[in-house]
Structures are given as structure tokens and as C-alpha cells.
């Protein structure tokens, strides 16, 4: 039985604005197990990103609890665009979390450099982001996210800024790295096929105020995302999820 890393229970969030009070999230409950890959899909504007902000502790829920197994676990946050700092070399970008967290010591630097080597960016460590292709930049962003060895990865549509070709291969790439490093992941996406190809579990959210509508366990049998797209049941899942999203 895998350990539960993260548990959301009856989480609700209400925004206050000058003219209105907006309920963004209500009665949201789900949990993430160790090594699990969850995708969260939902109609656009339903507050998917808000959920990640809540989990990462950037916002406080109005009601409910978010429990993290390891006390104060670290979250690795990855956004739509790579968000590499253009004035820093790749290496310096990857060290950024270490500098922020005051972990800029030999052991952590060695670990980050190990990741650079393992995932083919070591020879580009002195280059600036503008000198790398979109796919490589996104890989650099992932390594930055991993450099401080977080327990849980939060991915906010990390591939949607890439063109289709690059997207498929980066998706594969990122999946392999995440599995290699044994990370637990929550991916927020609007792309149904991406969700099917990458996840163990798919959570379908309702319109705002968003709450969990359906949860699906996707059988994947160790296939890579690209392989997963070729499986017979891929279309069946796609149709089901499409229907559920548009209900």
C-alpha cells in the first residue's frame, strides 16, 4: 500500500472583490499517493490553477484542510512558460531555488549538476536560455524544479506554450524524468489526450465553483506517454472524458 502524501478535505475558497464575492472552489477532496501521477482537467476558467496555488500554500483555503504527510514538504512548481531568467545562465537558473532556500551548498549543487548531466543539459550549463530551443528550455525548467529535491511536483499546463511536435516529445521526456526521479505529481491541463497519456489518475472538475466530478484510474502498464497514445482504449477514454467535461 503506497503512502498518502497529500490530502485535500472539503477545501473551499472564496475570493473577495470590490463588487462581488466569488466562490472559486467548494467541497474539493482528493488525495495524492507516493509516486502517483494525477491529472486535473476541467472546463476553462474553473479554477484549476487556483487549486495548485492552494496546495503550494500561496493561498489559504477559506474552509477545509490540506494535509501534507511529511510535515512541511517542498513543492516543485512548474508553469506554462519556462520562466527561466534571461540574464542567468542555465546553470544559474537551476541553482535559483537553492539560493532562495539557502541550500546553496556543495551537496545540493552536486545533486543539481548530476541532474544536468543525466538529462543532457550539462554542456549547455554556461549558455543563456535564449540560446536553447523551446523543448530544452522546458527541460531546464523541470530540472530547476527538481534541483531542490521536492516531494511533490505541481505542473500548471507546462506544455501548452510549445508547438505540437515539441510538445509530444517534451511530454515524453518530462514523464521519463519524473518517473526516474520517483516524484509524485499533480498536473493541471486542459488537454485531454495529454492527461490520458501521462496519468495514473484523472480527476475531472466541474464548472465554478469547482469540485471533483469524476475520478478515473487509467490502466497504463508502464507505457510511455507516446506509447499510451497508441493503445486501443485511448479513444474510449478520450470520448468519455470529453463527454464528462461538456456535461
Amino acid at each position: 500500500m503506497r503512502e498518502t502524501l497529500l490530502e485535500l478535505k472539503d477545501v473551499a475558497l472564496t475570493y473577495q472583490t470590490k463588487t462581488d464575492e466569488i466562490q472559486a472552489v467548494k467541497n474539493l477532496s482528493f488525495s495524492l499517493k507516493e509516486g502517483e501521477f494525477i491529472s486535473v482537467i476541467g472546463p476553462s476558467g474553473c479554477g484549476k490553477t487556483t487549486i495548485l496555488s492552494l496546495i503550494a500554500g500561496l493561498m489559504r483555503p477559506t474552509r477545509g484542510t490540506i494535509k501534507v504527510a511529511k510535515g512541511n514538504a517542498h513543492f516543485g512548481y512548474m508553469l506554462q512558460k519556462d520562466q527561466l531568467f534571461p540574464w542567468r545562465t542555465i546553470e544559474k537558473n537551476i541553482f535559483l531555488p537553492l539560493e532562495i532556500m539557502k541550500k546553496f551548498d556543495k551537496a545540493h549543487i552536486a545533486y543539481a549538476e548530476e541532474l544536468l548531466k543525466k538529462y543532457g543539459l550539462y554542456e549547455f550549463r554556461k549558455n543563456y536560455p535564449s540560446e536553447l530551443s523551446g523543448g530544452m528550455r522546458q527541460r531546464a525548467a523541470l530540472i530547476r524544479t527538481l534541483s531542490f529535491n521536492p516531494d511533490i511536483l505541481l505542473l500548471d499546463e507546462p506544455f501548452s506554450a510549445l508547438d505540437y511536435q515539441t510538445r509530444l516529445s517534451v511530454c515524453n521526456d518530462v514523464y521519463r524524468i519524473i518517473k526516474d526521479e520517483g516524484k509524485s505529481t499533480i498536473l493541471v491541463t486542459h488537454d485531454i489526450s495529454e492527461a490520458i497519456s501521462m496519468s495514473d489518475t484523472i480527476i475531472v472538475l466541474s464548472k465554478r465553483p469547482c469540485t471533483v466530478k469524476y475520478v478515473h484510474e487509467i490502466p497504463r502498464g508502464g507505457d510511455s506517454p507516446l506509447k499510451r497514445r497508441e493503445r486501443e482504449d485511448f479513444h474510449k477514454w478520450f470520448e468519455l472524458l470529453w463527454k464528462e467535461l461538456n456535461e
Partner: peptide
């Protein structure tokens, strides 16, 4: 977004 990223760290 970069501020958000830094805050998440």
C-alpha cells in the same frame, strides 16, 4: 508568473 514561481520556492 516569475514572482509566483519565486513565492512557490
Amino acid at each position: 508568473d516569475k514572482i509566483l514561481l519565486l513565492r512557490s520556492m
